[in-house]
Design a protein around this nucleic acid. Sequence first.
DNA 1: ACTTGCTGTGAAATCCATTCCATATTTTAT
DNA 2: ATAAAATATGGAATGGATTTCACAGCAAGT
Lengths: 325, 325
Amino acid sequence: MANIKEIARVAGVSITTVSRVLNNHPYVSKEKRAAVLHTIEQLNYTRNMNAVHLITGRTKAIAVILPYIHFFYFSVIVEGLAREALLAQYRLILCQTDYRPEEELKVLDMLRNKEIDGVIIVSTALQPEVIEEYTAYGPIVTCQDSGERRFSSVYIEHYSAFRHGLEYLAAKGYHNIGYCEGRKHGSSSSIRQSAYRDFLAETELPFLEEWMIFDCITEEDGAAVLHRLLNMTKRPDAIIISGDHVAAGLIIEAQKHNLRIPADLAIIGFDNQPIGRLLGITTIDNQLFEMGACAFRIIHDQINGDGGPPVHLKLEYSIIERLTV
Amino acid sequence: MANIKEIARVAGVSITTVSRVLNNHPYVSKEKRAAVLHTIEQLNYTRNMNAVHLITGRTKAIAVILPYIHFFYFSVIVEGLAREALLAQYRLILCQTDYRPEEELKVLDMLRNKEIDGVIIVSTALQPEVIEEYTAYGPIVTCQDSGERRFSSVYIEHYSAFRHGLEYLAAKGYHNIGYCEGRKHGSSSSIRQSAYRDFLAETELPFLEEWMIFDCITEEDGAAVLHRLLNMTKRPDAIIISGDHVAAGLIIEAQKHNLRIPADLAIIGFDNQPIGRLLGITTIDNQLFEMGACAFRIIHDQINGDGGPPVHLKLEYSIIERLTV
DNA sequence: ACTTGCTGTGAAATCCATTCCATATTTTAT
DNA sequence: ATAAAATATGGAATGGATTTCACAGCAAGT
């Protein structure tokens, strides 16, 4: 396979000149440029990018850490990332780590290894302190609210968004409010739990341990929630659910059992998913696509700019009123 | 930043010895190994992987070409890919190309550039002939039925699967069968269209141009389909829809308009999505996760094995009978 | 006529690890 | 005791580009 040296030899110029042509540098005469381009064509030459990466110390690649890709939440964020990456001609390395810390650390090590120019953490099992140690090796952006860390973040305020949802339900006259969550442990999950507990405590609304339902990941988990609700001696009259698809599961199952929404059970979801739009689910929009897009733009700026202080960008959520409250 | 030379100097050994330790090669004395490891620790050294990639000519990275990630179909295939990639300790480079040929070609060029060890094409706008030209530079696997090409593939037989669905509807007594498709142009889309036309022609069932409905991508497109159906003078009594989420949109909208499923309209979907399970949609399961997993295993074998002839792996689909037919 | 600045060109250093080859020492087999 | 094999180690070539530096020629400014 031809290399730059070969091109130089055949074209009768120096290696430097070939490199200049390759990189569109000035100060190459028309004749030599043409000769080089012709030789490149003729020998079917392409640059070995690994050599370029080695000498430049850049790869135009960014790693994305997330646990799974086939969840709506993650896939929309990645969609936002990918759109911007395409525009900026960067590569995204999808590092699906299943929330395994050792795998996530391997990805951060890629930053030390110079394999990548930055890391975008969509969701992680790692502590912020651990992530901070890697800021020495390159820019890192999270899509979680991690406080004033040495790495950047794009986030919505889950505490506030969640409370807003609860206040909305309370204002509509619902006083027995349940709560559905995905993972029990997890940074934004914990924030939402505190918001829930704090709100109920402050407003002196009833709090039952069994009204906090965890591990609701899929549509079918949502359907299962209905049966748990039906078996309760005291049942909530409203429920806040992280994920419209889970809410959809609950609603569809509720229809089968003639439970009226919102008369018997009010529901507010999250993520503003298409299925929620269709079913008329009242939801909290958290700008997932925009979050991905912003995360990319931030890291891109940090890679190509001054590499100044970390950016903390708060996105605004909004409650979309529909028919389930 | 420390490099291997520095480690060798400080540890008082040769560069070769450091490399041996790094790569777990035999023939290094306990003492020297310990000294090297200690120095590595002390100087906080890590390999520059770009140098490794350059000299070895391998990157343990595989590019994945697809148009969007936030569609169920693609995200589940990628989930399958990612699981296997994690096991094999390979990196996936997500190349979301929006079906732009020029971007897809750039990805294939990465194979020439030695940036990646292989390419998995989940869905593409390129012609098979174009893809074949790149097989010279490394292994390529598609998740589409492309015939006996010089690149590998994992696929289900869309023609046969689609006909099977139609036969199933016909056998159940439905004779006016409509058809909902995502993109009008596209390789598996065209195959399904032929299957539809062929079947109707052969069985002499009624064929109306307006019963072929295209650009049904989202749940909401599915809902829109209902309104098109309602406005038809002659309406199909059954419909086959590529994508359960689109079917779900149609079904949910149908409920709102008191159209009974399947009495007024039978529906068969594709992909065996969770939302379909929940709504009891009869569907054709096309093993998306498995398709991704197999695609990865095939390319992994080709990279690390003999690099023999292309593999063409056919996966079996199955009709899952539920309540909408 | 003379400095300054721009254009054009190439030699050589650099990025950093892997690996082939040569050599030295020690162990095992005959 | 001696040949053969295994262990241990390092020198130097290699992979393929970018970039700094030095220098030459030529046009413009004073």
